[in-house]
């Protein structure tokens, strides 16, 4: 049995759909192999809400659509040696970024909220208000990819990335053998 200290990993989902976290589970039985090498710190997988100590790898799903996302992302950058953007939303904004450019609209965020809560044909919103509870994090003017907020070391593409590319990249990074992706693993969908 190896007595090497295990690498610490943290994960978070920002403006994403949790599909990339589901994709982490697509690693299937190789998770057992991976768990020999790592310990999971702050993550929805462990339900830890704060860092208990500095981590070797931080994995971010989703881009930044509100101020809380930005705080979490900064916290990850501060506490992780290597930061990975996992999936298209973290890499380029993804589906949430559809609100950044709405046809013929000068105020796309306003138009998006209006349609979602007030004017949309199929909504049942008895208050006819856009939610504005003080507990809700403030929305950003646009949805930003992670790399426009902090420095990102690696990006794992996909929507969602396959279990194979996640396992391959993580196990190679952990053993210092990562030299880029196999071409047939690169997918943006």
């Amino acid at each position: 049995m190896s007595e090497l200290p295990k690498a610490r990993i943290a994960t978070a989902s920002l403006a994403g759909c949790f599909g990339c976290h589901m994709a982490i589970l697509d690693i299937d039985e190789r998770l057992i192999e991976l768990m020999q090498l790592v310990e999971v710190d702050r993550s929805p997988l462990t339900d830890k809400k704060r860092f208990t100590q500095r981590c070797d790898i931080g994995i971010i799903e989703g881009g930044c659509c509100n101020e809380e996302n930005v705080h979490v992302l900064h916290d990850f950058r501060r506490n992780c040696d290597v930061l990975i953007a996992l999936g298209q939303c973290a890499i380029m904004g993804g589906l949430p970024a559809m609100r950044n450019a709405i046809m013929h609209s000068d105020a796309p965020l306003r138009e998006c909220l209006d349609e979602a809560y007030i004017t949309g044909k199929y909504i049942r919103n008895t208050t006819h208000n856009v939610p504005n509870d003080p507990a809700l994090p403030l929305l950003l003017d646009e949805v930003y990819p992670c790399s426009q907020v902090v420095e990102i070391d690696y990006q794992i593409p996909g929507c969602a990335p396959s279990g194979d590319i996640i396992f391959d990249t993580l196990s190679k990074l952990l053993t210092g053998k990562f030299r880029g992706f196999e071409r047939d693993m690169i997918k943006f969908d």
Binding site: A97, M103, H104, S147, Q155, G180
Partner: peptide, 16 residues
């Protein structure tokens, strides 16, 4: 191999 973090801003034009 376009997989590295981008250095350019997204222009995000409003197109029809």
């Amino acid at each position: 191999d376009m997989t590295e973090a981008t250095r350019f801003p997204y222009l995000e034009p409003c197109r029809a």
